[in-house]
Design a protein around this nucleic acid. Structure first.
Lengths: 335, 335
DNA sequence: GATAGGGGCGTCAGTTTCTGTCGTAATAAT
DNA sequence: ATTATTACGACAGAAACTGACGCCCCTATC
């Protein structure tokens, strides 16, 4: 034991080892683990690591947590696909929370992202399974999540593509991409990722071009990450890029909205205000006046239009006229 | 060592111990841990557990993971507030995924739920911190999440209330609640939780009443879980309850919607279809016909209205007339 | 298909560390 | 005041862990 804080305690070594393991289908050799642990300050022989791995993979203690692919000779070790171990462990509250998170995210996020979260959700599900009160209703039968708003299907991103894109983005690497049905790869420099809920866009610059382009992730057929660095990565600033309106995002001027709400239309705003600047005043029976400072965006217009005849925009006049015009033109469609 | 699979391996014992620890501010005594591990099949003395706890709380290995409250005599052990340890450990993909999940959920979920997830998000954040490429842009500077739809603030639920409600619901326990500004507690039987995004409702029956009521979680000021069982918990069925329209949820008849979309309004439906029954056909230049089978709900009408003059509902005639009427009445507001 | 470099694993013996037991002092509970 | 619990130091036998070494098998490369 040299002077530094080298750890010769099996427990710590094993936990560090477990943390070094990738999740299947990725895998790692005992040699790589050895290097990694050594670089983390553990003073340990490779033999010990081999022993730990063997023991863990044979133990039933945490249910086939550690897997070994011994088909090819440098064995590949990994954590089983769906297994997960959290510290602190699950309890009722946490399992309920994960259950809720799963419900929230399932309609919202792309499949490939959900797949990554699956092991955690699975851990929560298993907790319920194990602690299921006999003859009683299951937790998930007691909870419903019914989000507001109309639901559209998220675009599908093939497994593995997103991983590589994230990797390139994270490590500032150029990449070759096969886009849509083009056969030729294109060399691009990735700068940022913009998630619009259903669709994720990658902000890139094509080789030899100056301008930024936006690629929808689900249109990438194949990706190959290169070793060359992205040029100018440190000068690109996503915030200002978005603020400049480059992606038609809902950034608008701040306006002081005054709106009349009829009937029960205002009810939900008491529970869930637009933001903290909101004030509501009942100016006559069944008529409530909303005043709030908001961004003047496309989404705001959707929201107002969606409320239909239950609302009337008073100010700003410009927005009032826009809404009026839109309603009028819409009505004409049906004439 | 008796005949059964009792585990006398420190590593496994310690991991089991770590999983038995609650997260601060909850805490557990060494005696309780002993009971729990024993019931899980570990054959171990309390002394060993005490030794493990001491060792873990003094070790720097996982950064003050285990805490001890030694102010009062049966010491209270816990996992530190923000600490978390996942197996398998973080990698770039997973950290990026958690970062994204945090972005998705932050505007969506109530504060108390987010607090529970904080340690995981924190673990991801720390991973980025540790693997930050020198002088390079931070991961979170490369990613933006800009959800579609107009954002309303989720209602606030005080910390601890939700925990107790979940607990009562999970364990089928009656509870006393202090609702809104009423001073008196009410005895209720909780049956289910319905999450509407911004607001969570608890389906309960008040003591001595037959009908079900809905309580918004953020209106509960205080909760006291009792030891008495909920009556009739096993006969209550949330699904049918909701289907019967008891909560004005967006469950509607299935209809075959035919709609004309003008200009670029149809574009996003190619990327993010309504559902798998959707078909799109360009019937004339700049006019696309959408056919899809959907639930005829309030949210559908919001969506259609929100699209304003860019769409025209063709069928069903009933919906067409509703939309027409709504647009007409809306327009009149501005006359 | 020969050969070299690794990788996996059996063995061993010294050493470390782990464990249950017991005793004591301090702390809560009654 | 008295009783039950708890924390913790000490100890010694037992268990396990470890690094070293060497053999054999696999794989890649020529």
């Amino acid at each position: 034991m040299a002077g530094n804080a080298s750890i010769s305690n099996k427990t710590y070594r094993v936990i560090a080892l477990l943390q070094a393991l990738p999740r299947s289908p990725h895998k790692i050799t005992s040699n790589e683990i050895h290097q990694r642990l050594t670089s983390e300050g553990h003073d340990i022989t490779r033999r010990s690591i081999e022993r730990y791995l063997k023991e863990l993979s044979e133990s039933q203690a945490f249910g086939a947590l550690v897997q070994c692919d011994d088909k090819a000779m440098p064995y590949g070790w990994s954590v089983a696909q769906k297994q997960n171990l959290s510290i602190p462990g699950m309890d009722a509250q946490m399992a309920a929370t994960w259950d809720l998170v799963a419900r929230y995210l399932t309609p919202l996020m792309a499949k490939d992202v959900l797949d990554k979260l699956e092991p955690v959700f699975n851990e929560a599900r298993k907790w319920f399974e194990r602690h299921r009160p006999m003859g009683k209703r299951y937790w998930s039968d007691k909870v419903a999540y019914v989000p507001r708003g109309f639901h559209l299907e998220p675009a599908r991103v093939s497994a593995g593509i997103a991983d590589q894109v994230y990797d390139a983005l994270y490590r500032n690497r150029q990449m070759n991409i096969w886009y849509k049905d083009k056969d030729e790869p294109h060399l691009v420099h990735p700068y940022a990722l913009v998630d619009r809920g259903a669709v994720r866009y990658l902000v890139v610059r094509f080789w030899n071009y100056k301008d930024y382009r936006h690629l929808a992730l689900h249109r990438l057929r194949k990706v190959h990450v290169l070793d060359d660095e992205v040029e100018g990565a440190s000068t690109f600033d996503l915030d200002t890029y978005l603020q400049e309106g480059n992606m038609n995002l809902p950034y608008g001027d701040s306006i002081n909205l005054v709106m009349r709400l009829y009937g029960r239309a205002a009810d939900h705003l008491y529970e869930t205000p637009v933001n903290e600047t909101q004030t509501l005043k009942e100016i006559e029976p069944d008529v409530t006046e909303l005043r709030v400072q908001v961004q003047n965006t496309e989404e705001l217009r959707w929201w107002v239009l969606g409320l239909g005849a239950n609302v009337e925009v008073v100010k700003p006049v410009k927005l009032r006229n826009q809404i009026k015009l839109e309603l009028g033109r819409g009505f004409e469609r049906y004439a």
